[in-house]
Write a protein that binds this DNA or RNA. Structure first.
Lengths: 202, 202
DNA sequence: ACAAATCTCGAGTGAGTACTCGAATTTCAA
DNA sequence: TTGAAATTCGAGTACTCACTCGAGATTTGT
């Protein structure tokens, strides 16, 4: 009934500045991993960016892979799952809005594009994160397309599951092209174009 | 008029086995870069796989980036630009056939997915290759869709340029999902599904 | 104020990196 | 056959990597 929230074995909690410190590390790591990838970015790069020693950094995140997972989960929490909140908003509008928003946040698109593909490689600590993320996203969009199908608003012949995977694929792929040629590629336009093909108006 | 093909300044040409040697190096590097990425894979990994010293490897490819470009260009030459050869074959069939074919060649999809995204990162020697590749592909599919549009076979409202970028994006994105969950993702089906939405029958 | 826990960091450790150098060995055209 | 070029590689260079260790500085509950 006291104010202590934790287990009896724990000696003491972290200091006051600790939370901010962790956050600034994660922010710096976000930049480094987005610009250089997980394998290409070093703990020293991150430590330099924060302005602390590499050893101190390892006090907060005991290994490089722990830091990576912290970055990925933090970004997922901040950006949200990337899903429509307002139930009144149409799927098209929600997707387009999110796409436009991501464009304005420096590094997000780089981070996901670079780390997602890198996670395919041998023994990459991010593989589970991205595998589960894709499964979750496919389920989520499958639900959305199925609901539309029930209202008869899906174009005949369109399979909801296939449309879900395709929408995610299109989104990822167009981001890659946009990163290489931002002026030649209209991300939001491509997504809207696809959804307007799949979803009937009204 | 003699059999000597080269310039007068050149002292001598490479030995007979040289060509095969280079090819076996490129093949090994293909596997290594596909499995570990450019930054994650080492020249030692490649040399071990070929069964030669790392020093000898550097005799054929004077730097790691030279080796990467050799791998990329070699793969592009072997697989072809990824384009319809037979003018009688429809765009849909050509795309689906190429997608099915790629599925059967070990490492190709990994290689492109991993290296393409990695090339976004700082000072990556593959960036120009992929940038130019995307420009070339977009032009190529733009031509194909424009030809269909001229025949009135494009669904009204579909922009050929946007469809070209979208097709490439979808293709790339679905490959990434397939790499993570081969049994849950039907690459050829998604591509066919998209093209049948965009292209009118007959 | 005190003491215990948290935080910080300099100095390693051992392994790995791309790449160089110089000298032996192999090939091949004359 | 011979001699010069192509090929091979052991040894080394200078560097970076993630991570450890131990000791001092800072914070904080009591």
């Amino acid at each position: 009934m006291t104010t202590t929230p934790a287990a009896p074995t724990s000696k003491r909690g972290p200091y006051a500045k600790s939370k901010q410190r962790r956050e600034s590390i994660v922010t710096a790591a976000h930049e480094v991993f987005a610009a250089r990838g997980y394998r290409g970015g070093s703990l020293q790069d991150v430590a330099d960016k924060v302005g602390m020693s590499q050893t101190s950094l390892l006090h907060y995140f005991p290994s490089k892979s722990d830091l990576l997972l912290a970055v990925l989960n933090w970004r997922d929490t901040v950006t949200g799952g990337g899903h429509p909140r307002d139930p009144e908003e149409s799927l098209v509008d929600a997707v387009v809005r999110q796409a436009r928003f991501n464009e304005t946040v420096p590094g997000v698109i780089e981070l996901y594009a670079v780390l997602c593909a890198e996670s395919i490689t041998d023994n990459h600590p991010g593989l589970d994160f991205f595998t589960e993320r894709y499964e979750r996203l496919r389920r989520s969009y499958l639900r959305a397309f199925s609901a539309l199908a029930d209202e008869g608003r899906l174009r005949p012949g369109v399979d909801p599951a296939r449309a879900a995977a395709s929408l995610i694929a299109l989104w990822d792929g167009i981001q890659t092209q946009w990163l290489m040629a931002p002026d030649s590629v209209d991300m939001a336009g491509c997504l809207r174009g696809y959804l307007e093909l799949v979803i009937l108006p009204e």
